[in-house]
């Protein structure tokens, strides 16, 4: 693919997304699918309020300026909603990050959502790195000292997530984890009480807030995913038809339709 084609495609995708965002806004929010991992969040918030313990929210190594800027922003949005829900309590949430650039973001989030107290003292930064074990180890100390009501780890984590989740598990603190790294994702699935898979973290703000705009983002992501799946399926069928010319197009269309229906059924069930 030459540069111009790439530019045209990128531009088209950007425009289509912008268009979809506006279209999706007029959809009903129930077009969203269920994300099981988020359903226990309100209960944890309630627990934090009732037990007078803080919530621990962590960005991991997601930060502004790097390639995972959108991840940091999505995490901040989710944290904002969670903190707002927990604001009736007395223990202000604590936020941790290993990327210094997400410090201002975290402080801003905390300040907007939790309107009292000293926010800076509740932020924990520890030196960064792709796999910041020092950061993870320090958070195990947090799990012991501060006894958070729950850990919400939404950001960029590698396998070091195991240290944090393991210590939370030992102390009976529930945890929700989501990471944009494959290794972190696998660890989250194995060790966290709830795990968000893939882009679910980006859609999460829409599920814990009443914000219509965030909801439309989730719908747009679902739409894009549907497009990608349909595109991949069609490409696969075309490839298949080249390999086996005896399968003519009605058969392929039939297979495609069956796949599509299966996909829809799976989507409804999820």
């Amino acid at each position: 693919m030459d540069e111009t084609t790439l530019q045209v495609y990128s531009g088209l995708i950007a425009l289509a997304t912008a268009l979809l965002v506006f279209v999706a806004r007029i959809w009903r929010r129930r077009a969203q699918r269920r994300i099981a991992g988020l359903e226990r969040l309100p209960a944890w918030t309630g627990r934090a309020i009732e037990t007078n313990r803080p919530l621990h929210l962590s960005f991991g190594s997601a930060g502004i300026g790097g390639d995972n800027t959108p991840l940091a922003l999505a995490g901040a949005e989710l944290f904002h909603q969670i903190i707002e829900g927990a604001e009736a309590g007395d223990a202000p949430p604590m936020m941790s990050m290993s990327e210094a650039m997400s410090l201002p973001l975290a402080q801003d989030t905390a300040r907007r959502a939790w309107k009292r107290g000293d926010h800076l003292a509740r932020l924990r930064w520890l030196p960064s790195g792709r796999r910041s074990l020092a950061f993870a180890a320090a958070l195990t100390d947090t799990a012991r000292n501060e006894e958070p009501a729950a850990h919400v780890l939404a950001g960029s984590f590698g396998p070091e997530l195991a240290l944090i989740l393991d210590s939370a598990e030992r102390r009976g603190q529930p945890s929700l984890a989501a990471s944009d790294q494959l290794a972190g994702q696998a660890v989250a699935f194995a060790l966290a009480d709830e795990a968000l898979i893939g882009e679910e973290l980006f859609a999460a703000p829409a599920y814990v807030s009443d914000d219509r705009r965030a909801g439309s983002d989730a719908v747009v992501m679902d739409l894009w995913r549907a497009f990608v799946i349909i595109g991949v399926t069609i490409a696969l069928l075309l490839q298949f038809s080249q390999l086996m010319p005896e399968y003519n197009w009605p058969v392929l269309a039939g297979i495609g339709a069956v796949l599509l229906i299966l996909g829809l059924v799976g989507y409804r069930r999820s």
Partner: peptide, 27 residues
């Protein structure tokens, strides 16, 4: 699975970037 994961993240990144550009970000 890894590719699907990457595709999902990339897709979400585009949508989130769009939200920031359109001035919808919380901050």
């Amino acid at each position: 699975g890894a590719r699907a994961f990457l595709l999902g993240i990339a897709m979400a990144t585009v949508v989130t970037g769009q939200r920031v550009l359109l001035g919808q970000d919380r901050s």
